[in-house]
């Protein structure tokens, strides 16, 4: 692989591969990594890819992903694969998969939606209407969300 020439293997951690070109920084951002955490992070952007033409790739030493984080990645990088690395070897490899129902990961863009009301114990809830192009619909107020809007609506944490 081309990127192996650029960056070394990691011992323990996560490789997020096949990220659509140009979105690696967004992927890092939504899993809360700023670079200030101290862990080794390798980033390749716009690398040639047979599958995608161009792709991004991220290697993170000493960090594994929670299911919630994988779902968030699926929202902005639906082609991504997650490799778990243990002792320099790929311990598991899987493609991210956008769930049919997305709970609590996105803020509904409709300010009048019941999920945006302060003081109510309610999570946002979106149904995946289409994966390509991405289209989600709020199950409370019916507001539709497109791929371009998703990034700005991801919740913190």
């Amino acid at each position: 692989m081309e990127e192996e020439l650029l960056i070394r293997k990691i011992r323990e951690g996560t490789v997020i591969d096949h990220i659509p070109a140009g979105r690696a920084l967004k992927v890092l951002s939504i899993i809360g990594l700023t670079g200030g955490e101290g862990m080794v992070i390798a980033l390749v952007m716009n690398a040639p890819s047979q599958k995608l033409g161009r792709k991004d790739l991220v290697k993170i030493e000493g960090r594994f992903l929670a299911p919630r984080e994988v779902d968030k990645i699926a929202l902005i990088a639906p082609s991504a694969t997650i490799n778990v690395i243990r002792d320099y070897k790929v311990a598991s490899k899987r493609k991210v998969e956008l769930p049919d129902v997305i709970k609590g990961l996105l803020k509904c863009p409709n300010p009048d939606c019941v999920t945006n009301q302060p003081g109510e114990p309610i999570d946002s809830l979106f149904k995946t209407i289409s994966r390509s192009p991405l289209r989600l619909v709020c199950q409370y107020c019916g507001e539709a969300v497109s791929e371009e809007e998703v990034m700005g609506l991801l919740t913190k944490g």
Binding site: N110, D112, C113, V114, T115, Q117, E120, I122, C138, Q139, Y140, C141, G142, E143
Partner: peptide
Amino acid sequence: HKIDGSARY
């Protein structure tokens, strides 16, 4: 209720 989705909730 004036809030969208309040009845479903």
